[in-house]
Design a binder for these strands. Structure first.
Lengths: 219, 219
DNA sequence: GCCACTGATGAACGGGCGTTCAATTAGTCT
DNA sequence: AGACTAATTGAACGCCCGTTCATCAGTGGC
């Protein structure tokens, strides 16, 4: 049978070695599962090791602290998520507006609207103020998120030549609405449906594109 | 001198009695300070008692658990905050739109844009999934928040008679943008200015009022 | 002036935490 | 086959946690 289980002919292997990169990856995955299921407060090095099926000391062999491990998790989850959303936008055939709609719809898909994912994010957010490392990951990944949105919005502005759109601010506004609705939906899914969330974001976009609307708010 | 300090004529008072209501209030205030400064993870019953200047056992004398205390804090902070914002809206002289703008501006005032306040809210949010009590407080207070926004938006719809505004959904959208921007600003105040936040919310409102915009997102 | 009532105290309990480190062992290289 | 290397183990350390409860002490009613 498998060499990871006891055999009749010899002693069981007590553990299996792995290359540091693979092991780190396994620890990251285990940490993510813990954060999603238990939240930051109940995610201990012990529970992570239990989840990963390794002994207590292993985390501190591969990471010099719990903080460093969580920072790696943050970085990876952010990148994966943004990649998923970006992929959805890129896969949409059509003009810039169609791609943006695809991005928004993907943001309200069941992969994203998951209270476990919120628990993960709340964990990261709650660490930003006491961990420089985590704060840096936040700034970097949120910057990448904004940049992606801004790029999509620049496509919009290009399609609609006479329109003067402050794409930086528009990206901030759209991300604010996406994040705020996502947060609220995860906290209480009964408040509104994912479809309604999509419609609200679309409404915001439409408002941006109504030419004389934008300048009303300006000084 | 004060009877709460040692006197030359007698022994120092070891403690002072207070009516349960007053004491509870003091504990709530101390808990709030702890949550704002340290976050949920570092806010222990011990640190709360230290902050309130009372002994360890007192919290469990007035509350049967830490959870019950935090639920009381949540309830009170929510009510205070909504009262502050509602006050700002009510104090604004003018039409419905003016009152809404006042509400929005108040939401981006320095009292609200405070990373300590975010830490408090992150604490509450992170407890909603493992505490029925806290989840109930969230539902109740967020419902009141939405109701206030919806009332203000109904005033808008009344001023602009031909406009058909789904005030429930509009309130959800506005709250989403307010919360999302508030969250992001607290996490990284360098991303945008409070003024820009106000302008983004105003833009969303203007979009809602551009008559033919709303139905575009509808089925 | 005393007593009952009740708010307040703080030691004690059992447990979980992050981190350290000497010992062990799997896998590779000669 | 044996030695070497480095991944892995798990006990141990010191600390903080929420809750319990026997005890103490102010206050109001008699």
């Amino acid at each position: 049978m498998s060499e990871s289980h006891p055999q009749s002919t010899g002693r069981a292997r007590k553990f299996s070695r792995q290359a540091p990169d693979e092991r780190r990856q396994a620890l990251i995955a285990a940490t993510l599962r813990c954060l999603a299921e238990q939240g930051a407060e109940r995610t201990s090095i012990r529970s992570i090791c239990r989840e990963a099926g390794v002994s207590l000391g292993l985390v501190n062999h591969h990471y010099h602290s719990k903080e460093a491990l969580v920072a790696d998790v943050y970085e990876q989850v952010s990148n994966d998520l943004l990649a998923t959303l970006g992929e959805a936008a890129r896969a949409a055939e059509g003009d810039a507006r169609t791609r943006l709609s695809a991005f928004i719809e993907a943001s309200f898909s069941s992969v994203i609207l998951d209270s476990g994912l919120l628990r993960v994010w709340l964990s990261f957010w709650s660490m930003t103020h006491k961990s420089r490392l985590i704060a840096e990951v936040h700034d970097r990944t949120y910057g990448a998120y904004l940049a992606t949105l801004e790029e999509l919005l620049q496509g919009l502005a290009r399609d609609d030549a006479p329109l003067r759109l402050d794409t930086r601010l528009a990206a901030i506004g759209l991300s604010g609405m996406l994040d705020g609705l996502w947060l609220e939906w995860c906290l209480n899914p009964r408040t509104f449906t994912p479809d309604e969330g999509v419609r609200l974001c679309e409404t915001f976009l439409d408002g941006l594109l109504a030419r004389d609307v934008w300048k009303r708010g300006s000084p």
